[in-house]
């Protein structure tokens, strides 16, 4: 972790502007129905993730209850959510951290 030595001097209007541009996140939620093999395959085939990365994210969903799979523009994440619903995964979009 990097220690901050001074507070940045930022105008409040600027902060508002920045918060509107915060990226959107695609969150996939755990459920007791979708098979682990299925979720892992969806991550591989739809996002093009490596088998290792797909497996890691799938296990994160399974153990933590959810996982941010990726972030991006509102349009991109909207279309990801729709695709995840097409696969029957529980997914939502959310802005910021």
């Amino acid at each position: 972790m990097v220690a901050m030595t001074a507070m940045p001097d930022v105008l409040s209007e600027f902060e508002t502007l920045v918060s509107q541009d915060k990226p959107w996140r695609l969150v996939v939620w755990n459920d007791p129905v979708n098979l682990m093999s299925y979720v892992s395959y969806v991550f591989r085939s739809y996002f093009g993730f490596s088998p290792e990365k797909a497996e890691k994210l799938m296990l994160q969903v399974h153990h933590d209850g959810f996982c941010t799979v990726r972030s991006g523009s509102r349009e991109a994440i909207e279309s990801d959510v729709q695709a995840m619903h097409g696969f029957g995964l529980n997914a939502t979009m959310t802005q910021g951290a």
Binding site: L35, Y38, Y41, R44, S45, P51
Partner: peptide, 12 residues
């Protein structure tokens, strides 16, 4: 479905 996913992973 689970066997189908196994086959798909194998094909991938």
């Amino acid at each position: 479905l689970d066997t189908l996913m196994g086959a798909l992973m194998d094909a991938e």
